[in-house]
């Protein structure tokens, strides 16, 4: 990837900061999301909660369905491909998608290799549970990182765990002596240059969003206070009683994530939240895919 392409790809993620990216399955949902204030939408055939319920193999969505969503809204449109499935990524690039999510929500196509994202012009976002995973994905060319969380559960605990772990590892790397960084690179299985960047800047070299299990304005604000630069909301919106109102409340909670009085107001009368599944009740652990 050329240096200028890198700036453009990381730059689009910078423009999404402070915003909410919402999973949508139809042009109508995409419009509801845009009107509620989403800064981008993720086009997919089934939201994670339904993927979980349906079981089987979950793949990239029908390009026609994605195009319908691209035509319905003016905000950026993202779509998911399977981990390691570079042909699905080539297809998404061919239909001019704005961002590809190489996602553990879909069934992995490769249990060893991720996509060489450096060979694409289109930007990629990837999930990570800790600093090592994040830097490995960035080394492969990811322009944006998100926590994996545990998609389709409405349970925030894994996203919190991943964000806290990432932050504590960044703090640890930042406080190291320079001669300790070589060993850190070795133990995290990542290139020294990326460790050096984290050491010098106390942050990842790309934008870091929260994802997986966010269902309420309070969940979104929690992730922002923990250091997320924006949030993805998947099943949480269109599996709830009043999607439009919930979506809009989450958008405002992300902007004013430290204003408890406002978030209290935003949390009123939202109707039923998605029912949710506790992490102990689920059989399929998506976060362990692609590490």
């Amino acid at each position: 990837m050329e240096k200028s392409q890198n700036i453009l790809n990381r730059g689009l993620a910078q423009m999404l900061k402070g915003g909410v990216i919402m999973d949508v399955t139809t042009p109508e949902q995409a419009k509801i999301a845009e009107e509620a204030g989403a800064c981008a939408v993720m086009a997919l055939e089934r939201i994670p909660a339904d993927i979980r319920a349906a079981g089987g193999v979950s793949r990239m969505s029908d390009p026609k369905m994605i195009k319908g969503i691209q035509n319905a809204v003016s905000i950026p449109v993202m779509a998911k491909c399977r981990i390691g499935h570079f042909v699905e990524a080539q297809i998404l690039e061919a239909i001019d998608i704005d961002y590809i999510d190489e996602s553990e929500v879909l069934s992995p196509a490769d249990d060893i290799y991720h996509i060489n994202k450096l060979s694409f012009k289109v930007p990629f976002v990837c999930g990570a549970r800790d600093l090592g995973e994040a830097l490995r994905r960035i080394n492969e060319g990811a322009s944006m990182i998100r926590t994996k969380g545990e998609p389709g559960t409405g349970d925030i605990i894994q996203a919190v765990r991943h964000m806290r772990k990432m932050n504590s590892e960044i703090a640890r790397i930042s406080s190291m002596r320079e001669d300790e960084l070589f060993e850190a690179a070795k133990s995290l299985q990542v290139p020294y240059e990326l460790i050096l960047y984290v050491h010098n800047n106390q942050k990842l070299p790309v934008v870091n969003f929260a994802a997986g299990g966010i269902a309420t304005p309070a969940d979104a604000a929690l992730m922002m206070q923990l250091g997320a630069e924006g949030v993805f909301v998947g099943s949480g919106i269109f599996k709830s009683g009043n999607p439009s109102k919930r979506a809009n409340s989450i958008v405002k909670a992300v902007t004013n994530y430290t204003d408890a009085a406002l978030i209290a107001k935003l949390s009123e009368d939202l109707g039923e939240a998605m029912v949710g599944i506790n992490e102990k009740e689920i059989e399929l652990i998506m976060e362990e895919r692609g590490i």
Binding site: Q14, M15, K17, E35, C39, I75, P76, V251
Partner: peptide, 11 residues
């Protein structure tokens, strides 16, 4: 700043 104008305008 830059961002999404629909989101910013609404907020």
């Amino acid at each position: 700043p830059g961002g999404e104008s629909t989101t910013q305008g609404k907020l």
